[in-house]
Design a protein around this nucleic acid. Structure first.
Lengths: 219, 219
DNA sequence: CTCGTTTTGTTGTAAAAACAACAGAATTGT
DNA sequence: ACAATTCTGTTGTTTTTACAACAAAACGAG
C-alpha cells in the first residue's frame, strides 16, 4: 500500500491531507488494496457496491452489455480516479455495468461508513476527507446536469447554442476557449463531427459567432 | 419556521431524524427561512451559491437564458425538494441559471460548512444528516450517469435498447414495468413521442420485445 | 353506461442528422 | 525544412427524426 501513497495524495479524495497523516488515515478508513490481472473483473454487473475505490495503477474499463448482448464501453478509469461513489447509497441497487482491468491494475477500497462517520480518535483530517468526497460528487453532479442540458436539445445547432452559451457564462466573456477539439466536442454532445462542423460554419456565416480552432467569440 | 418542520422531516435531507430533534437540528445548522413573492428571484445567474436549500412552500422554476436571449425551463422544483447541492463545491463556479418563484414560495437555507462539520455538542443526528445528504447526491449522480448513457446513443432505437436493458437489469427480469407513459419516456430520452412509438412497434414486429402500456417483456 | 379526455399508434412529409469520402490546413516529430 | 499525422471543413447521399394530423384504444368522472 505504501508505494501508492503519493498517488493517493494527489487524488481528489485526499486533497489537503499531509503526507505524514496519510498512513494513519488509511488505517482509520480500513483501506484495502487489491490487484487485478488484465481482463479480470473489478466489479460485475448485478453486484452490490458499498465501497469507494481509487485506481492507483493500470487502467479500468466500464463496460455495458445490453439485453441482446451488444457490448459498449461506457467509461475509462485512469490512475488517481475515484469510482463507485455513485453506487453506495443503501437504496441505489446493484451496479448495471462491468468494470474490467484493461491492464494489470491496482485498486484501493475504502469503506463508506468509515468515511462518513467521523472518528473520535487521532485522525484529524477526517473532516477534510468528508468534504473532499462531498465536493467531488457535488461537482460531478453539476457537470452531469449541465451536460444533460446540452444533450437534451433536439438539434445540433441548439446543442451548440446551449454549450457555447454555458461556456460564455462560465468564463464570463463572449470570447472564450473550449477544452475540446472538434471530435471531442462532437463526442461530448453526442453528435457527428462533420455535421457539427458544418453547423458551426453555418452559424458563423449567419453572423452568430466567429471561431478559430478552440477559440470562440459569440456575437 | 416551525410550521414547516413536518415538510422538512419528510425531505430527503432529514430522513430518520425524530421530530423532537428537528428544532435543535435546525438551530445547529443555522437554518434560515426566506419567502418570495411570485416572480421574485431565489438565485440569479452568475451568483455564487454556498448554501443548500429546501423548498417548503410554493414552486420554483429553474430557467436558462442562452447568449442570444432564448429562454428555456430547465427544471421545476416542488415542495420538499432540495436545491443547490450541486453548486456548493468551492471550485464549482457560479450558477448559470436563474431560479424564480413561480408561486409565492418559502425556502429554507442551510449552511454547508455547518452540515459537513460535525458538532461536538447536542445534535446527535448530525451524522445522519451528513449521510442523507451524501446518499442523496450519490443517488442523483447515478441516475444522471445512467440517463446520459441512454441519451448519448445516436438513434431512437438504440436509446430504447439502452433504457430497456437497464430496466430489465434493475428489476432483474426480462418482464418489467416502467415508471413512464410514452410521452414521459420520450421526454426522458429527449426524442419525439410519435417517432419513438413507431420505433417501439417496429421492434415489436421484429420480435425483439412485447409490451402493453407500461409493461414490457424483452425476448 | 356514456361522454369527454388522455394515451397510444399510424401515416406521410419535410427537415435534419449520420455517414462516407476527400481536400486543405495545422501540427508534430525528426 | 520536410514528411507524416492529425485536425477541420466541405460536399453529396442515405437514413433517421421531427412534426403534424388523425384514428383507435383506454381511462375516468358523473
Amino acid at each position: 500500500m505504501k508505494k501508492y501513497i503519493q498517488t493517493l495524495k494527489k487524488s481528489r479524495l485526499f486533497w489537503g491531507v499531509d503526507e505524514e497523516d496519510m498512513t494513519s488515515m488509511l488505517h482509520c478508513l480500513q483501506a484495502r488494496l487489491e490487484t487485478y490481472k488484465k481482463g479480470e473483473y473489478v466489479f460485475r454487473q448485478g453486484q452490490n457496491i458499498d465501497q469507494i475505490t481509487i485506481l492507483v495503477e493500470g487502467k479500468l474499463l466500464v463496460q455495458r452489455d445490453d439485453f441482446w448482448g451488444n457490448r459498449s464501453i461506457v467509461n475509462v478509469i485512469s490512475v488517481g480516479e475515484m469510482f463507485g461513489e455513485a453506487y453506495i447509497a443503501p437504496d441505489s441497487g446493484t451496479i448495471l455495468n462491468d468494470v474490467i482491468a484493461e491492464e494489470d491494475s491496482a485498486v484501493i477500497f475504502f469503506d463508506v461508513q468509515r468515511i462518513l462517520t467521523t472518528c473520535q480518535s487521532a485522525c484529524r483530517f477526517h473532516s477534510i476527507v468528508i468534504k473532499n468526497l462531498f465536493f467531488a460528487i457535488s461537482e460531478k453532479n453539476r457537470k452531469l446536469v449541465q451536460k444533460i442540458g446540452h444533450m437534451s436539445k433536439r438539434s445540433i445547432r441548439t446543442k451548440l447554442i446551449s454549450y457555447l452559451s454555458d461556456e460564455a457564462k462560465r468564463q464570463n466573456s463572449s470570447s472564450f476557449t473550449i477544452p475540446f477539439n472538434r471530435q471531442q466536442l462532437a463526442d461530448f454532445l453526442s453528435v457527428d463531427r462533420s455535421a457539427m462542423s458544418n453547423e458551426l460554419c453555418k452559424m458563423r456565416d449567419e453572423g452568430m459567432l466567429t471561431f478559430e480552432r478552440d477559440k470562440f467569440h459569440l456575437l
